[in-house]
C-alpha cells in the first residue's frame, strides 16, 4: 500500500559511491568503479521497498551505505530526518539500535563459534538491554517470531548444526531482537533453496505487520519483489531506472530494462497475461562510458543520438510511477511481440 500521507522514514538524496581500484606507482589512474551514481529515493514508514537489480548494479552497496557499513562518496542519507553522514558516539549508538541488516549468506553471517543464544542475544548485550534473564526471554520471543520454536531446541545449538533456512532465521532473529525501526534485507534467500525462500518471505512480511517495521528488500528477482514489496525500484549500473508500486511496475513496466528483466524470468504454470517485450538487444555487454543511458548498449528501442548522449531523468509518468527513459513518456509506447508461456508453443 502506497500512501503519500505517510511520512518517509528514510530519505536518500543524490547518493554516490565510487570504489577506487589500486593505482599503480607509474601514474596509471586505474579504473574507478562507480557503484552508485547520484540516486535518490524515499522509503515510507511501514512499507517494504524492493530494490531489484543484477549483480554489480549497486543494490548491495546502497544497503551497506544505509546501515553505515560504508560511507558514501557524495550525497546524504536521512533516517527519521537525522543525517547519517558523520554520525558518531551517542548518535551512532542510537542509530545502530534502530537499523539492522540481514545478510545474503547465512553460512557466512553467523559466527561459527557462538551458539544461537549468544548470537541472537549479542545486540542486547551490546546495547546493555536487560540482564541475563530478561535477555533470554527476549531471545526466546524473537526466535518464536521467526518460527524457531520451541526456542529451547535451538538455543544451545551452533550454526553448523542448523540447515541453511534455520540459519537465516537465526540471522533474522538477531536483527529483530532489538525491535528495530528499519531493516535492510540483502538478498536473504539467494543462497537458499527455492522451497525455503517462501518461509523467509513470509517471516519478513509477518515481521512488518507485527513490529510496524520498514524493510528495504534487496533482490535480483522481480517475482520475489512482487510477492513481498509494496514499492519496487529497479536499479541498473548504479542508476535507478524505474520506481513505483510493485504491481504497477510488473504489470505495466515502462523501462526497457525492466521489461527485459520480466522477459528473462523463467515462467511456468499459469502464465496469465504476461507479455513478452523483447527489448533486450544483447545479453552481455560492456558498460558505456560517458553521459549516456547505461542500458543503451543492450537496448533495442534506444535512439542512437538521444540515448547515448544524456542520461534521462527519473520522471513521474503516472501516479507515483517513475521511469528514467526517453521512451517511457506517454505517447511513446514500445511495440511488443511474442508470447512468453510455454503452454502456448
Amino acid at each position: 500500500m502506497i500512501n503519500d500521507k505517510k511520512k518517509p522514514i528514510l530519505e536518500i538524496k543524490n547518493l554516490s559511491k565510487v570504489y577506487r581500484t589500486k593505482r599503480s606507482i607509474f601514474g596509471d589512474s586505474g579504473n574507478d568503479v562507480i557503484a552508485l551514481d547520484r540516486i535518490s529515493f524515499k522509503i515510507f514508514e511501514g512499507e517494504i521497498f524492493g530494490l531489484v537489480g543484477e549483480s554489480g548494479s549497486g543494490k548491495t552497496t546502497a544497503g551497506r551505505l544505509i546501515v553505515k557499513l560504508e560511507e558514501p562518496a557524495e550525497g546524504k542519507i536521512y533516517l527519521e530526518n537525522v543525517d547519517l553522514t558523520g554520525l558518531k558516539g551517542k548518535g551512532l549508538r542510537a542509530f545502530r539500535r534502530k537499523v539492522q541488516m540481514i545478510f545474503q549468506d547465512p553460512y557466512q553471517s553467523l559466527n561459527p563459534q557462538l551458539s544461537v543464544l549468544n548470537t541472537v542475544s549479542e545486540p542486547l548485550t551490546v546495547h546493555k538491554i536487560g540482564n541475563g534473564k530478561t535477555r533470554q526471554g527476549l531471545v526466546r520471543q524473537a526466535m518464536k517470531s521467526v518460527g524457531l520454536s520451541p526456542p529451547d531446541d535451538y538455543l544451545h545449538r551452533y550454526p553448523h548444526q542448523l540447515s541453511g533456512g534455520q540459519r537465516q532465521r537465526v540471522a533474522i532473529a538477531r536483527a529483530m531482537v532489538l525491535n528495530p525501526r528499519f531493516v535492510v534485507a540483502d538478498e536473504p534467500t539467494s543462497m537458499l533453496d527455492a522451497s525455503i525462500s517462501a518461509q523467509i518471505f513470509n517471516i519478513l512480511s509477518d515481521m512488518r505487520e507485527k513490529l510496524d517495521l520498514t524493510i528495504l528488500f534487496i533482490t535480483h528477482s522481480l517475482a520475489a519483489a512482487r510477492y513481498l514489496c509494496d514499492r519496487i525500484a529497479v536499479i541498473y549500473r548504479g542508476h535507478l531506472m524505474e520506481m513505483g508500486p510493485a504491481e504497477e511496475v510488473i504489470r505495466n513496466p515502462k523501462h526497457p530494462y525492466t521489461q527485459a528483466l520480466i522477459d528473462a524470468l523463467p515462467k511456468f504454470g499459469d502464465c496469465g497475461d504476461i507479455k513478452h517485450y523483447g527489448t533486450l538487444l544483447r545479453a552481455d555487454s560492456e558498460a558505456l562510458g560517458g553521459a549516456g543511458c547505461p542500458f543503451y548498449p543492450r537496448c533495442r528501442v534506444a535512439h542512437r543520438t538521444k540515448c547515448c548522449t544524456g542520461m534521462p531523468r527519473l520522471e513521474e509518468i503516472s501516479d507515483s510511477h517513475l521511469v528514467a527513459c526517453y521512451y517511457a513518456l506517454p505517447g511513446s509506447e514500445i511495440v511488443t511481440e511474442g508470447d512468453a508461456c510455454f503452454y502456448a508453443t
Binding site: A194, S195, S221, L222, I262, F268, G272
Partner: peptide, 9 residues
C-alpha cells in the same frame, strides 16, 4: 514446491 514459488502472476 509449486505453490511456494513466487511468480509474476
Amino acid at each position: 514446491l509449486i505453490s511456494s514459488y513466487p511468480t509474476l502472476t
